[in-house]
Design a protein around this nucleic acid. Structure first.
Length: 423
RNA sequence: GUGGGUAUAGCUCAGCUUGGUUAGAGCGCCAGGUUGUGGCCCUGGAGGUCACGGGUUCGAGUCCCGUUACUCACCCCA
């Protein structure tokens, strides 16, 4: 029989104990932020019927065209692992009649999402997102709030070198008019375009603007900015959002090339870019999607939201050396001479654990020296030595590892001793 | 899907150019350095089909070919 060591699937990763403090801190900050902004947690399934994502994310997107984990289950249903949160959240909003809740409905989610891509630095096939949506109103105050929540998240984590990129891509009223002008402009420059852009011209002209090929840059530079072609409503909306951002001194960069990859966006789109975590620098993306809920079978309902990539945030935390609370070591470690001592240690430990005090017992066959070494490496605050001497007098010899002081006390005074001398 | 890079101990890597007896280091792990005690230091031990499969050669971790995996990047995104 061949010895095959199992390897984790491509694009997945283990989050090892040593990395967990970053995640614990990040999740604590997320909870704090969502609480402050009054967003309620909503958990949706990791998989949904395939058609939800096909329609909700958009047939023409890379996600739907080539990145979905889709399979047929035993009931012959086409199932897809969620490639993002929004479609599932909106499905839940409609299915659970949340339109009858006070408007707007503000919910957040977190968990793994899945995209079949070639992994690289900062990109995985299974990764985690923090997602928030404000559903039910078109007020630009909500656009601001969503961006502000992202801003505060990163600020609270202590990040430097972030930039907020902002654009408006209009609505079904004004975007077609703009796209007409954009296409007209591009028709005059087809000779200077890359192959992809020649296709985009017919298929998805908005994407012409975020092409990164060198040869296309001069053409993009001369293209008409969409923000100058917004309808009155979109223009007022965008101006109001900028006003709020300016008033609160939230830094942002207007980027008329930012168009985003998902089909459902209207008006506001934004991303947050980081430095120093590889070439995949988007740590957060979001915007408004006023047409999505109707598209998925609900009443016409405006909505705005964002998603942040947690792996990329953790990478930034490590790269920028953001301090995070570590895992606490045991308060007490019992170094035992023999099995009889171990038995007594288990009795003491049970009482300590009842009081919420963390402790460990040294395992058999090891010398006191070895047990002290382990206690030290595990950063135990106290070590109790249990041998014949202590067992004979119902006492314990307790040592404070930091100072090196040790004294003998009665066993039934352990909890009191620890309480008085600190954990 | 398309490119580049890398594969030797649990981890980080030497060794390859100039093939040659039992394949190394640091860290980590385990155990010791007499009488029941950590951190520093010293000693010892466990742990490797040198990614896999072919080829050249008297002889391959080392040279050649192929495969696979990992990784970075492109497209696109978190």
């Amino acid at each position: 029989m061949a010895k095959t060591a199992f390897q984790l699937p491509k694009g997945t990763r283990d989050i090892l104990p040593e990395e967990q403090p970053y995640w614990a801190h990040l999740n604590a900050v997320i909870r704090e932020i969502t609480d402050v902004y009054q967003y309620a947690r909503l958990d949706v399934p990791v998989f949904e019927e395939t058609a939800l994502f096909q329609r909700g994310v958009g047939e023409a997107t890379d996600i739907v065209e080539k990145e979905m984990y889709t399979f047929t289950d035993k009931g012959q249903n086409s199932i897809t692992l969620r490639p993002e949160f929004t479609a599932g959240v909106i499905r839940s909003y409609i299915q659970n009649g949340m339109s009858s809740l006070p408007t707007p409905v503000k919910v957040w989610s977190t968990g793994p999402v899945f995209r079949y891509e070639r992994p690289q630095s900062g990109r995985f096939r299974q990764f985690h997102q923090f997602n928030a949506e404000a559903i039910g109103d078109k007020d630009p105050v909500l656009d601001f709030e969503i961006m502000d929540m992202a801003f505060r998240l990163y600020q609270r984590l202590g990040f430097q070198k972030l930039s907020f990129q902002l654009n408006s891509i209009g609505c079904p009223e004004c975007r077609p008019v703009y796209l007409g002008r954009l296409v007209d402009y591009y028709r005059g420059h087809t000779a200077q375009l890359c192959e992809d852009c020649k296709k985009r011209l017919d298929k998805n002209p908005l994407r012409l603007l975020d092409c990164k090929q060198d040869m296309c840059q001069p053409v993009i530079a001369g293209a008409p900015p969409i923000v100058q072609h917004l309808c009155d409503e979109c223009n007022r909306h965008f101006k109001a959002l900028c006003l709020y951002l300016d008033s609160l001194n939230r830094p942002y960069t207007l980027n008329h090339r930012l168009v985003r990859g998902l089909d459902y966006y209207t008006k506001t789109v934004f991303e947050v870019w980081a430095e120093g975590i590889g070439s995949q620098n988007a740590v957060c993306g979001g915007g408004r999607y006023d047409g999505l809920i109707e598209l998925l079978g609900g009443q016409p309902t405006p909505s705005v939201g964002f998603a942040a990539g947690l792996e990329r945030i953790v990478m930034m935390m490590q790269q920028q050396q953001i301090p995070v609370p570590g895992l606490p070591g045991p308060v007490i470690y019992f170094a035992c001479q023999h099995q009889e001592a171990q038995k007594q240690a288990l009795i003491y430990l049970s009482g300590l654990r009842d009081s919420g005090i963390a402790g460990l017992v040294g395992l058999g066959g090891r010398s006191f020296k070895a047990q002290f070494r382990e206690a030290n490496r595990r950063q135990a605050r106290y070590v109790v030595t249990l041998g014949d001497t202590e067992l004979g007098s119902s006492s314990v010899l307790i040592k404070h590892m930091e100072t090196g002081d040790q004294e003998t006390i009665q066993g039934d005074q352990l909890i009191r001793y620890i309480t008085e001398h600190g954990r």
